Amino acid sequence: MKGLGTFALIAGICWLIFALSMDVSVSTGAGGRVNNLGLMADRQIHTIVGGVIALAGLLMVLLGGKGSPAAAQAEKNTRPCPMCAESIKTAAIKCKHCGADVEPAAAPRLKNGWVASTTCRDEEEQQSTIEAITGTGLPVVSMIGLAVGAGPFATKEEAKQALVTMRDGPRLFSEIVYRDSVSGKYPPISD
């Protein structure tokens, strides 16, 4: 958005310069010049159009938000130091500004994503499945009815790897599903 705004601002300013430098007079033949109403109207229209484009470009530049995805990513991967409040990386264990030892921030748990889901016949089997998934070191998430799963994961490949781990370790057979928050079929994950 900022790039388009910058282009429009430059184009509008160039248009304004062109409009204001237009000659609106014509030769009378006797060595004199007079203003032509048609050329004056053209200059007025060009001035208005150039001004509107320049104004729109300026607004896009000012209200365009973040400049680049890299800047947004850098901001997302930082947090304030608990001692000096300077910006440090999320995974930092020592502040580069004040030298204080800080705890690394825990990664937030996904609310939606790919899950290796296992269906259970009753609550007893559900509890043993939860214990088996926990024993493999995978995160446990509740699913529809008595089903439970490992996840959610950001990619389908991670869920497939969890499926293999569950199959090879505790011999749990599951399927890969996408757990969303829109359908209302899954209870929400609380932090």
Rank of each mutant, 00 (worst) to 15 (best):
92 A>S: 11
25 S>E: 11
91 A>D: 08
88 I>T: 09
21 S>P: 03
53 I>C: 07
148 V>G: 01
65 G>D: 09
150 A>W: 03
139 P>N: 13
120 C>Q: 08
33 R>D: 04
95 C>I: 11
173 F>G: 02
33 R>S: 07
119 T>Y: 02
75 E>F: 01
175 E>W: 09
17 I>F: 00
130 I>Q: 12
131 E>R: 10
25 S>M: 13
191 D>M: 07
182 V>E: 09
157 E>Y: 09
164 V>D: 01
181 S>G: 12
66 K>F: 02
31 G>I: 14
69 P>Q: 05
135 G>M: 14
137 G>C: 11
129 T>D: 06
7 F>L: 14
67 G>S: 15
27 S>R: 03
8 A>N: 02
70 A>C: 02
21 S>R: 09
54 A>H: 03
81 C>N: 05
28 T>C: 15
166 M>R: 13
58 L>E: 07
67 G>C: 11
144 I>A: 00
183 S>T: 09
155 T>E: 11
40 M>P: 00
49 V>A: 13
181 S>N: 05
94 K>W: 02
184 G>L: 04
26 V>C: 04
16 L>F: 02
182 V>K: 06
62 L>D: 01
97 H>A: 08
45 I>A: 10
168 D>L: 05
88 I>H: 05
95 C>Q: 05
101 D>F: 01
43 R>T: 05
158 E>K: 11
34 V>L: 14
105 A>N: 06
47 T>F: 00
141 V>E: 08
59 L>A: 13
82 P>F: 03
14 C>E: 01
96 K>D: 04
121 R>T: 05
109 R>K: 13
52 V>R: 00
183 S>P: 04
98 C>T: 05
178 Y>A: 03
44 Q>Y: 00
149 G>S: 10
1 M>Y: 04
55 L>Y: 03
65 G>W: 04
98 C>Y: 01
94 K>I: 14
65 G>A: 13
27 S>N: 07
166 M>V: 15
145 G>T: 06
109 R>Q: 04
12 G>M: 11
26 V>P: 00
165 T>F: 02
117 S>N: 06
181 S>F: 02
139 P>W: 07
103 E>H: 07
22 M>R: 04
75 E>Q: 13
138 L>E: 06
9 L>F: 14
63 L>D: 04
168 D>M: 07
127 Q>K: 15
57 G>S: 13
133 I>A: 09
46 H>S: 13
46 H>L: 09
151 G>C: 13
64 G>Y: 06
83 M>R: 02
191 D>P: 13
184 G>Y: 01
61 V>C: 11
126 Q>V: 10
135 G>T: 04
79 R>I: 10
68 S>D: 01
19 A>K: 01
142 S>A: 06
126 Q>K: 15
142 S>K: 08
106 A>C: 08
94 K>T: 14
118 T>Q: 10
119 T>Q: 08
40 M>R: 02
156 K>A: 07
167 R>C: 08
187 P>V: 04
